[in-house]
C-alpha cells in the first residue's frame, strides 16, 4: 500500500514537473514564433512582407490549415527549405506550381524567405 501511495505521489510530482516542462516548451514556441513575427525595424518589415507573398498558398508565417496537402514551410528546416527552393529555381526539382514561382525570385530573396519561415 505504502509503495503504491509513494508511486502515486511520485507520479503526481512527475505530472507537475511535466506541466512546467510543457509551460517552458510552449513559452519557448511562443517566444520563437513571436520573435519571427516581431516587426521592430524596417528590415524586419520588408522581410516579413516578402515572406508573406508565400502565405497565400502556404498559410500565414508558413503555417497552413488542416488538412494540409501543400507543404507547411514552418515545419521545414531553413537549410532544407532553401535547398528545395533553389532546386525548384534551377529546374533540378520538378513540380506543378513551385518551379514556376521559384523562378520569379532571386537567390537572395529565397534565402530571406527560408530564413524567415523555416526552423533554425
Amino acid at each position: 500500500m505504502k509503495t503504491s501511495v509513494t508511486s502515486i505521489l511520485s507520479a503526481w510530482s512527475g505530472i507537475r514537473q511535466f506541466r512546467y516542462v510543457l509551460l517552458i516548451v510552449s513559452s519557448s514556441v511562443l517566444l520563437c514564433s513571436g520573435a519571427r513575427a516581431q516587426v521592430n525595424t524596417v528590415d524586419q518589415l520588408n522581410r516579413a512582407s516578402l515572406a508573406a507573398t508565400c502565405a497565400s498558398c502556404h498559410g500565414t508565417n508558413g503555417v497552413g490549415a488542416q488538412p494540409a496537402t501543400l507543404s507547411n514551410p514552418a515545419d521545414l528546416q531553413t537549410a532544407y527549405m532553401l535547398e528545395q527552393l533553389l532546386a525548384f529555381r534551377n529546374g533540378s526539382r520538378s513540380g506543378t506550381i513551385m518551379p514556376q514561382i521559384a523562378k520569379g525570385y532571386s537567390e537572395e530573396q529565397l534565402q530571406t524567405i527560408a530564413q524567415f519561415l523555416g526552423k533554425h
Binding site: 502565405a55 497565400s56 498558398c57 502556404h58 498559410g59 500565414t60 497552413g64 490549415a65 488542416q66 488538412p67 494540409a68 496537402t69 501543400l70 506543378t96 506550381i97
Partner: peptide, 19 residues
C-alpha cells in the same frame, strides 16, 4: 489537367482563407 492539382486547389483555398 490533373486530380493532384485538384487536391492542391483545395489546399490553396483552405490556406488562403486562413491567411
Amino acid at each position: 489537367p490533373s486530380v493532384l492539382e485538384g487536391l492542391y486547389a483545395w489546399s490553396w483555398a483552405r490556406n488562403i482563407w486562413s491567411d
